[in-house]
């Protein structure tokens, strides 16, 4: 008993404090995930809950995983999701990088105002913002009208349009995703760029580099961890996004989130829905591991710095 008390005194508190987040992850992530994995291997039954193991069916049913690779619905859904998410991520990076860089170059007071503006959209409901875009993209909106006028001005008569069909397309999905996820790109990039020493830019300039070369040789290589962090924060939720494609997407080429939701709620095929969810998670683990490896490297470097 005495040794237990001394052990607790020596290590207990530390282990307890480190243990709390692990416990949280186990209870709220690992166990539910294992339930989903188990469900993905069950067989669909007309009972409640609508799945079961054994009986007339195989104990573990791998049919769902086989369907993933054979049915075009799933293959297409994965490709659409990954493509939309990838395009949205790249556009977020192209728009977000100059914004993040700009934030680091303005005066302190301006910086706070601009950072506030970046975060400001979060103050309204996410759903409301998507609805706003639906209104903007609709055929009778001023926004659509404006774009139509520009289109008609720039193209020959034979291509003239009365309105641009934006809604219910992958274009609409990417546009709204870029709008909604842009802050997730800007903020980690800003956090990264803000830490870079401006003297390094001067040093490169001093050694003969023009501003563009300074950016290419000094700023960009040092901001890779920020780019990866931002890309992960945009790509992962975008790939599994449900609401945006459901509201503005093309119903005939659904994304993964839509498939999972439909399989659960409409088709009531819980094992298949679980299978798709597991597959999506496995797909996302790869990039996440890449990210954490990069972060470890960056942290290791920071620690070794005297």
């Amino acid at each position: 008993m005495k040794s237990l008390a001394s052990w607790f005194h020596r290590r207990g508190w530390r282990d307890l404090i480190i243990g709390i987040p692990y416990l949280w992850l186990i209870v709220f992530f690992l166990i539910p995930f294992l339930i989903v994995v188990a469900m993905s291997l069950a067989t669909r039954t007309p009972t409640a809950p609508p799945f079961g193991y054994g009986g007339a069916n195989p104990i573990l049913n791998f049919e769902g995983y086989a369907r993933l690779f054979t049915e075009t619905l799933y293959i297409r859904a994965f490709i659409t999701s990954l493509m939309n998410a990838a395009v949205a991520t790249v556009i977020c990076l192209i728009i977000g990088y100059p914004m993040a860089l700009g934030l680091t170059r303005v005066s302190k007071s301006w910086r706070n105002i601009l950072l506030m503006l970046v975060i400001l959209p979060f103050w309204t409901s996410f759903l409301l913002r998507v609805y706003a875009w639906m209104g903007m993209m609709g055929r009778n909106s001023w926004f659509n009208g404006l774009l139509t006028d520009i289109w008609n001005l720039l193209t020959p008569q034979s291509y003239a349009l009365t309105s641009i069909p934006m809604m219910n397309s992958n274009f609409a999905v990417v546009l709204v995703m870029v709008y909604c996820y842009l802050p997730f790109m800007i903020l980690p990039l800003y956090a990264n760029l803000e830490r870079l020493d401006p003297v390094l830019d001067e040093a490169a300039m001093d050694l003969g580099s023009r501003p563009f070369q300074v950016f290419r040789d000094v700023t960009l290589p040092q901001s890779i961890p920020g780019i990866i962090a931002g890309a992960m924060l945009v790509f992962i939720p975008a790939a599994g996004e449900l609401v945006i494609p459901a509201l503005v997407g093309n119903p005939s080429s659904p994304m993964i989130g839509r498939i999972i939701s439909d399989e659960f709620a409409q088709v009531r095929d819980w094992p298949m829905a679980s299978t798709v969810a597991v597959a999506l998670l496995i797909l996302m683990v790869g990039p996440t591991m890449l990210y954490s490896r990069y972060q470890q490297k960056a942290e290791g470097r920071a620690e070794e710095r005297p």
């Binding site: 390094l200 040093a203 300039m205 003969g208 040789d217 000094v218 290589p221 040092q222």
Partner: peptide
């Protein structure tokens, strides 16, 4: 402009590029 001056500076903080090796730093100019 600074990049065209026949002048180089040794900065107080040294301003070594952290993502380049010693060799690459020296070769930069």
């Amino acid at each position: 402009p600074p990049w065209d001056r026949p002048v180089h500076m040794m900065f107080q903080s040294y301003a070594i590029f952290p993502h380049m090796s010693v060799e690459k730093n020296i070769a930069y100019g």
